[in-house]
């Protein structure tokens, strides 16, 4: 294992540390121009940004699907690189936007078991892991159902379970609230709040970010344009306009009571 470089300053290494990350696609389009930020363990952070800001590109760097042109990504002290790939993919749980892409096995149980089984877990231990993950998202007892018989909200929750089953260091959610009806949206929010895990949430849904994440980052034109308390960023009209971020009609972050 590599020595943990920043353990001198904090007892626990940051869940995620991105330093000087730059990336250009093979066709020459440069998506990221030096991204720097860190997420401490247990934090819930929203990554906001207009379409085409490079959010998805950034997410695909977090578990080594894309290899940075320059800069580094470190997950709980472990640098993302070809040598640690299996461990990195276990530590970084990405929940993709379309649950039908995420759930590819014939039954819910097998899908949730896929990650831990790929990591070598078998038998009773695997079974326990699957049951715990399904219970965390309120889907215990649905193990033997095929994913296409579930509602969209249930599929999204199972998609979260497939990642939780790997006991990740950080949960990365790509547009978690998209296509959810208000009730499923609230259920998912309750689940995310109840989890004891670091969360990075990529979203356009600004009220959802305010509801769930005390801190937000704004990614714009391939750099981190702002980093601060979510309520403060959403309340800064000029900053918001500069980065093509708009609040829904009638929504005023200053009048939203903070959650106890």
């Amino acid at each position: 294992m590599d020595p943990v470089t920043d353990s001198a300053t904090t007892a626990v290494p940051a869940s995620l540390k991105v330093a000087g990350l730059a990336f250009a696609y093979p066709d020459g389009h440069q998506a990221l121009f030096g991204v720097d930020f860190r997420v401490e363990r247990g934090e819930r952070v929203a990554l906001l940004g207009p379409n085409g800001a490079g959010k998805t590109t950034l997410v695909l760097h977090l578990n080594g699907i894309l290899t940075p042109g320059a800069g580094t990504v470190t997950v709980a002290g472990l640098p993302v690189g070809a040598r640690n790939m299996a461990e990195i993919r276990r530590r970084v749980g990405i929940v993709f936007q379309d649950p039908d892409d995420q759930l590819f096995m014939p039954t819910v149980r097998e899908d949730v078991a896929f990650g831990p089984a790929a990591a070598g877990l078998r038998g009773a231990e695997l079974e326990a892991r699957v049951e715990r993950a399904l219970a965390l998202v309120g889907m215990a007892g649905s193990g033997n159902r095929p994913p296409h018989h579930l509602s969209f909200g249930q599929r999204r929750r199972v998609a979260v379970a497939t990642v939780l089953a790997m006991e990740p260091e950080i949960l990365v959610l790509d547009e978690p609230s998209s296509n959810l009806d208000p009730a499923s949206r609230r259920e998912l929010a309750d689940i995310l709040r109840s989890l004891d895990v670091t969360v990075l949430m990529v979203t356009h849904d600004l009220p959802y970010a305010l509801e769930l994440c005390p801190r937000s980052l704004i990614l714009s034109d391939g750099v981190i344009a702002a980093d601060g308390p979510t309520a403060g960023l959403l309340g800064d009209g000029e900053l918001m306009r500069a980065h093509r971020l708009e609040l829904p009609f009638g929504f005023d972050p200053r009048t939203v009571a903070p959650r106890p």
């Binding site: 695909l60 578990n63 699907i65 993919r89 995420q102 590819f104 790929a118 990591a119």
Partner: peptide, 9 residues
Amino acid sequence: LAMVSRGYT
């Protein structure tokens, strides 16, 4: 992509 992210090799 989703499979690779969960350790498919």
